[in-house]
Simulated scan of single mutants.
Amino acid sequence: MTTETRKGQSGAVVILSGGLDSATCLGIACAEGHHVTALSFDYGQRHRRELDAAARLAKHYGVSHRVFTLPFFREMGGSALTDDTIAVPTEGVDPQRIPSTYVPGRNLIFLSIATALAEVTHSEWIYIGVNALDYSGYPDCRPEFMDAFAKVATLATRAGVEGMHIAVKTPLLHMTKAEIVAKGTELHVPYELTTSCYAGEEEACGVCDSCRLRLAGFAEAGRVDPIRYRSR
């Protein structure tokens, strides 16, 4: 089933993981007046809690929510998020190395599918919450990659050939985690509905790289993270 944009609105596909950054992207896209289709992926990640969070966020904003299953990520492995034999890092983020939580090809494939969905839904925008400052060293979160993919999306689609370019929007790219939290707070993003922890338990662990970045962002923004942590 396709979902076309409403009259007078431009369409946007928002890649929604259920975490802090993607929730902020969803809040921004809705605030900018787009007719949004939220897009999530069940790619064999360690837990489904983030998919539950994505569903809650989509319901909160009243937007269409599509979930695509990509089992081959777990079949390939090579990441602590898709291979249970690889430990999730808890020693903190080292920007000089690519961590074991990097999933090979993830954003490349996610963006390709988002581009296809944007064509089907006649959407002009793809929002993705990548961040080049307070990020975990992932090569597919860099500005160079985003610029290159935007060119590919134009060349590879009927929409691009016919003059309706699908633009990749990265509103958080040059923001610190604290700035992201501040922006989301300004937009009343329901962070209590989100999850960022790699462990995927009812209470966030507070020590994995993702939890550390999130907690630091809230602290620097002078805000209290509304989700529950084991260590607090």
Rank of each mutant, 00 (worst) to 15 (best):
T3K: 15
T3C: 14
T3V: 15
T5E: 10
A12T: 02
L20I: 12
E32N: 10
E32D: 13
H34T: 09
H34G: 01
H34K: 12
Y43F: 11
G44Y: 00
H47N: 04
R48A: 15
R49E: 11
A55M: 06
A58T: 03
G62C: 03
L70R: 07
G78D: 06
S79E: 08
T85W: 05
T90K: 14
E91S: 15
G92V: 00
G105N: 04
R106W: 04
N107A: 09
L108H: 12
L108Q: 12
F110T: 04
L111C: 05
I113T: 09
I113Y: 09
A118L: 08
A118R: 02
E119G: 14
V120K: 15
H122F: 14
S123E: 03
E124G: 15
I126D: 01
R142S: 01
E144D: 14
K151N: 11
K151E: 12
K151V: 13
A153W: 00
G160W: 04
G160I: 05
M164Q: 15
T185H: 12
T185W: 09
E186V: 12
Y191G: 07
L193N: 03
E202C: 11
C205E: 10
V207M: 05
C211G: 03
G217Q: 03
F218M: 08
F218W: 03
E220L: 12
G222E: 06
Y229T: 08
